[in-house]
């Protein structure tokens, strides 16, 4: 790890100010991706601006339409939240399956989606549920937020403050874990909300999370695994690495989608 200056922000405004002053500053929340990267000397920010303990960014609120989760809320908090378990149990289950207990008790939802790791779980939930990401100066729909590999619509002076998920009629997430890292080799989040049916895939795509519209149309008419049994996903644009070929990932998208639909129908 290289040397850096550490700032504990007193507010989002304070964090933005520190970020503006830093030569090459980075916001840190739970640090579960950033710190290992820094330890490996692959990242060397001049300044770390810590927003992990800001009260204004933490906590979960619910109403009849859905749940809003503060950006600095840990995965463990989401997994254990009565509100989330009631409104969107699939989201709580997803949070409870991220990483290991250490990661879940430090890592946060804001950090996860701002990083947009192509194998992270939360982006699939955001996209499938049609979540809205709130920042210090605007709201961004999930469709517009995730723009590519480790890339988002966030500007340099923009900090995620929360995520609002609409309530789902039915939803489930199925993850096929990379045997080594246990990140998603393929993760499929299927959701039926007031807006329709969405199928979002993480772990598989070269550009990060994406939707499978052919499955969405089929499920809109018949929300059953049988309805998508005949759909094969193209391997074009899917990741190829030592763990899985594009063909295998394409195949797993089908398997995980069917299993997710079955689970959603519970």
């Amino acid at each position: 790890m290289y040397e850096f200056d550490y700032h504990r922000a007193s507010s989002v405004a304070d964090a933005l100010s520190a970020l503006g002053k830093a030569e090459d500053g980075t916001v840190i929340s739970g640090g579960q991706t950033l710190l290992p990267t820094m330890k490996q000397r692959l990242a060397s920010p001049s300044d770390l601006i810590d927003i992990g303990s800001l009260d204004e960014l933490s906590g979960i609120s619910a109403d009849g339409n859905g749940v809003t989760i503060g950006a600095a809320t840990t995965h463990a908090t989401v997994a254990g939240s009565g509100d989330v378990n009631k409104a969107i149990p699939a989201l709580a289950a997803l949070a409870g399956g991220i990483g290991d207990p250490h990661v879940r008790n430090l890592g946060t939802i804001g950090g996860s989606i701002a990083n947009n790791d192509p194998a992270a779980d939360y982006p699939a939930a955001c996209l499938a549920l049609g979540a809205t990401i709130t920042t210090n100066n605007r709201s961004i729909s999930a469709d517009d937020f995730f723009t590519g590999l480790f890339d988002t619509a966030l500007e340099n002076d923009e900090i995620v403050t929360g995520v609002t998920f609409p309530r789902a009629d039915k939803a489930a997430y199925m993850k096929f874990a990379n045997p080594a890292s246990r990140y998603a080799l393929v993760g499929v989040f299927v959701a039926k909300t007031g807006e329709g049916v969405r199928v979002a895939v993480t772990g598989a795509g070269e550009d990060g999370v994406f939707r499978v519209e052919e499955m969405e149309s089929a499920l809109a008419g018949d929300f059953s695994s049988a309805a998508i049994a005949g759909i094969s996903v193209s391997s074009d644009g899917l990741n190829n690495d030592i763990h899985a070929s594009p063909d295998y990932r394409a195949h797993l998208i089908g398997v995980m989608a069917r299993r997710a639909v079955d689970a959603a129908n519970g």
């Binding site: 045997p179 080594a180 890292s181 990140y183 030592i242 763990h243």
Partner: peptide, 11 residues
């Protein structure tokens, strides 16, 4: 070495 950490080398 492509399997240079536990992210890629599966114990």
């Amino acid at each position: 070495l492509l399997t240079g950490s536990f992210m890629d080398y599966c114990m």
